[in-house]
Amino acid sequence: MSFDPILLLGGSGAIGRQTVRALRATYPDVPLLIGGRELAKAQKAAAEIGCAQGVAIDAAAEDLGLGEQKVSAVVVLYKDHSLAALRFAQSRGVPHLSISSGVFEIAPEIARFMNAPDAAAIVLGYEWLVGATTVPALHLARSFSQVHDIRIGALVDEQDVGGPAVAADFEHLSHLMPRALTRRDGDYIWREGDEMKAVFSALDGSEIAATGFSSIDVVGLASATGARNVQFDLGMGISSSRRKGGAFSTEILIELAGLDPSGQTLHSRHAVVHPGGAAPLTGMGIALLLERLVGLDGKPPVAPGLYFPYQVLDASHYLTRLAEEGGQVINL
């Protein structure tokens, strides 16, 4: 089966290259358009990737400067303040996935969807590492009859710096997001001041100083499970693998508390680990989303709608792919 190219805006960066790597691992012949403001840079990246074309993007143009070029999906790997790519995707009736907005600034995208709900699928890919928290957490929540509390601790190794686009996104979010969206006793609150400070244990038991982070994971997990307490904390330091003398990795600590099927108290603690760091895990999530959005796997593409990543991704398939990449979900 042949497909129109997938347009990757910002595809020449670190996350873009990891997305291509993950996508091509299963679909080596899928055509790609690597879009950027600088044509030469996009063309160079496309040549290195293979089976790809570099194109210059004009965000001021309704067609992004692509003319009649057909695409099967649009992926935005940087903060698109103008929503030019979303408008383009809706006008072409193709799925749209972006990964860089904060939970506090998604109203423009929701408004676009509400005014054209039947145009195509739109995925708000702002979950931490694009599904790496929510997919395992909701899979683990199946052991509970009721989930009362969810606490997430994401550890980024200080050597896992990513590319310039990642740095720009974090600077943007840090500047505009001084408080942390949290669910406490059934209410959504914004932690601030000393309440932003937190500590969680890494995979090896080391205590990690962390700060509350307004990840959209909070509202997704609260809505999906009914948990009355959901908290997300982000820490930067030395990952457990590097503390043991190896290379850095990325860690996500997931704690769930509630009741088991018999009504007894149940508490679990797991770690999601990827040996390559944050970028490969992010790229894997994007690739698996594209597989479903476009229908690369031969199944019907995702219907028009507004989605969290975990609503598109199949947990069993995700966890199998994670294991194939050397990642793990470890019971602590």
Rank of each mutant, 00 (worst) to 15 (best):
L77G: 01
I49W: 00
P178A: 05
K70D: 05
R37L: 09
P108V: 07
S174H: 14
S145A: 06
F200G: 00
I110N: 06
E62W: 11
A120H: 02
R24W: 01
D217Y: 05
H81S: 14
P304A: 05
A180K: 00
D217N: 11
A287Q: 07
P108C: 02
Q146R: 14
P304Y: 04
R24G: 01
D58Q: 15
P275Y: 14
A227P: 00
G35P: 07
S101Q: 13
E109L: 09
S239F: 08
A89V: 10
G125S: 07
A315P: 03
K44S: 10
Y307A: 04
M236W: 12
A42M: 09
V302N: 04
M114I: 08
G285W: 03
G50V: 09
A47G: 14
L289N: 03
H148S: 08
A107P: 06
A107M: 10
F104H: 12
P28F: 00
Q159W: 11
V166W: 01
A116T: 09
A222S: 07
D63W: 11
G36Y: 04
K70A: 12
G263Y: 07
A45Q: 01
L253A: 11
A222N: 02
A271S: 15
V199D: 12
Q43W: 06
G125A: 04
H148Y: 05
A107C: 06
V55L: 07
E192M: 09
D204R: 15
V156G: 02
W190M: 05
E68Q: 14
R142L: 05
E291Q: 15
